[in-house]
């Protein structure tokens, strides 16, 4: 088989994933596009491993590791997305601008909600990501 075929397919799949990461608004859809990019890298690794006929099967073993890492990544990523959804009530990427700097910076709704109701230390902790545990 011509090596150009799998290599070109991997490149195009990677670029489709790149478009998805840049253009999507929902965080779960961005994670799907990241999966597409990882799959493109896996295809590249397998194709080049079969081409070189490596005795240690480096490319295919690395693809196995990559699949396991993708599973771990999607687990952590979805946990973070669910936490963000519980805190902010949205998963739209352009509305999560609590850490934004510059002219477009706005206070996240959690802090403008009722700033006087809690003491300053708690509000400060809330601004840093609400890591304070009771």
């Amino acid at each position: 088989m011509h090596l150009v075929h799998p290599a070109t397919l991997a490149v195009l799949l990677f670029c489709v994933g790149l478009y998805g990461v840049l253009a999507r608004r929902n965080t779960v859809l961005v994670l799907m596009s990241v999966e597409l990019m990882l799959a493109a890298v896996s295809l590249n690794l397998v194709a080049f491993d079969v081409w070189l006929a490596d005795e240690l099967h480096s490319g295919q073993v690395f693809t196995l590791f990559l699949i396991a890492l993708a599973a771990a990544e999607i687990g952590i990523g979805l946990a973070i997305v669910l936490l963000v959804y519980r805190r902010r009530g949205t998963v739209a990427l352009d509305r999560l601008r609590a850490l934004r700097d510059g002219p477009g910076a706005v206070a996240p709704p959690d802090e403008v909600h009722d700033p006087d109701a809690r003491p300053a230390a708690t509000a400060d902790a809330a601004a840093r990501g609400q890591e304070a545990t009771p």
Partner: peptide, 8 residues
């Protein structure tokens, strides 16, 4: 991913 879509 489907669970993530459902839970959000």
């Amino acid at each position: 991913l489907l669970f993530g879509l459902m839970l959000t």
